[in-house]
């Protein structure tokens, strides 16, 4: 089985936010919830870079470790998913997540923050693949159809790469060798405890 990862090539990302819009539309993500976002570093200064960030589907995911009801699980593709039926909306996963991926329908923590929502790597949830109930809760399941996450698939500059970790690392490596520079695989050290050696 593949070990699915995201990689954002910040030297290509132009902050067009198409990945954000694609994600929102594909999964009917409501207002106020952003499974993916683009962050601009050193905005307006020389050396400005933009990075598209979502759940990185970490190795030994912190969110899964801290969850008080163990609602997270890792699929055979190493995608970190969660069950909205078990989630109690405590907000702990957001404290643990290095990338700010978990999102909640409510702002205050009175009673509950609502069922947590996050990037599913376009692979739904614990319900049966491609079922209506799965779509309602988690959005579409492109992985079950043999497709990759839409954000990366439609990235116009191919800055955002999704797929098997070794394959996207290879693509990135080739790019860096060809063009002679690269600002690195953002978040990989934190998410996967490894970086791409070039």
């Amino acid at each position: 089985m593949a070990r699915m990862k995201f990689l954002c090539d910040a030297d290509r990302c132009i902050e067009c936010n198409a990945c954000v819009t694609a994600c929102k539309n594909e999964h009917e993500v409501p207002w106020g919830i952003n499974r993916r976002r683009v962050i601009t570093l050193n905005d307006g200064k020389p050396g400005e870079r933009s990075v598209s960030m979502a759940c990185m589907h970490c190795t030994d995911a912190p969110c899964a470790a801290v969850c008080p009801v163990n609602c997270f699980y890792t699929t055979a593709d190493a995608v970190v998913l969660h069950s909205k039926d078990l989630c109690i909306g405590c907000g702990y996963c957001f404290y643990a997540c290095p990338f700010g991926a978990p999102q909640y329908p409510r702002v205050g923590n009175f009673g509950s923050r609502g069922k947590m929502d996050k990037c599913t790597y376009c692979s739904g949830g614990p319900e049966a693949d491609l079922s209506t109930i799965e779509y309602e809760k988690y959005g579409s399941n492109r992985l079950a159809e043999g497709k990759l996450p839409l954000c990366a698939e439609m990235c116009s500059t191919k800055a955002l790469l999704a797929g098997d970790g070794e394959m996207i690392a290879q693509i990135y490596k080739e790019r860096v060798i060809k063009r002679g520079y690269g600002s690195g695989a953002w978040g990989w050290k934190t998410a996967y405890r490894e970086t791409i050696a070039i």
Binding site: R37, T40, D43, V51, F94, A96, W186, G187
Partner: peptide
């Protein structure tokens, strides 16, 4: 952290590795 066009200040955080330390504590 950087700048985002989302009206949610928390979204501007790109990486906070302290989450790992908090997880170790918890």
């Amino acid at each position: 952290g950087g700048r985002v066009s989302i009206p949610d200040a928390k979204a501007a955080n790109l990486i906070q590795p302290q989450g790992r330390e908090w997880r170790d504590f918890r």
